[in-house]
Amino acid sequence: MYTQAMDLAPKDERKAVRTAGEAELERRFEARIDEGDYVEAKDWMPEHYRRTLVRQISQHAHSEVVGMLPEGNWVTRAPTLKRKCILLAKIQDEGGHGLYLYAAAETLGVSRDGLIDALHAGKAKYSSIFNYPTLNWADIGVIGWLVDGAAIMNQIPLTRCSYAPYARAMIRICREESFHQRQGFDALNVMMREGTEAQRAMVQDAVNRWWWPCLMMFGPPDKDSTHSEQSMRWGIKRIGNDELRQKFVDATAQQARVLGVTLPDPLLKWNEERGHHDFGPIDWAEFWRVVGGNGPCNRERLDARVKAWEDGAWVREAALAHARKQALKGAAA
């Protein structure tokens, strides 16, 4: 998930000896968080809090930007003009979301260029889901339905994140996100209800390939997530991985029935006693493989972003050079 950052963060050096002053500031900081108070850019904050947020927010931003690529693959091949427009608008939104998030991260004392360098050097991560290929048009619908559906579940709690610039960015993102899931579901629904046999097979094939990776989006089980606790205490992460994943399965199983597709899990079943769906075991080896850089598209995604950045260097430099020339002319006038 976009909060995979929390689960995958390297063990940070727990602070060494703190001064009495710092300890007092941190105590007051924690008290404010417990009261549900917001933290703004200029407030004192523990260095650990600041670093965790920079990592979390920037990787969320990277996810949005890298996420433009698998969907971007199908823009020139969209089957109707209306679908082409919808897809372009959706991808554009994702670019915009990346932008809001970079802006939020920058309030914490980093530059966007620095964050991008970290991504391109392979030091910063992005959500593992975008390392999977989009192989047919139905993948686009499934991404809207399942991937954006999972993202929405994760994003709504983040609108109450203790760090206010991040929370505000999330509010703006959630407002725009509603159309993303709906358009995906709609695209699939039309194909299932009114389409040909071949189209229905295309949809089922896409579901078969994306289901398990989507469940992995929520990150490892809580018991294996070393940093969730601290992030929960700080109001950065508000709901555990397992709980979010269960919510997602419950909602999606029902939606799948409406669509008329089969989710590729023979153990998926409603459990009356628990009041939830039981589901089969997730292949965590695959998750760690993909997160570790050995998924189907890791290399291609990063190459595409690096290439876009490097090919665009002369453009960015020229714009800056021109602005400087104008500024000098203005000063001379």
Partner: peptide
């Protein structure tokens, strides 16, 4: 539309998509 996701800077990516 081919520029979508490959623009020289994120802001301009959004602008080019608007043109398209």
């Amino acid at each position: 539309a081919e520029w979508c996701g490959h623009g020289p800077v994120l802001e301009e990516d959004i602008a080019l998509t608007n043109l398209s």
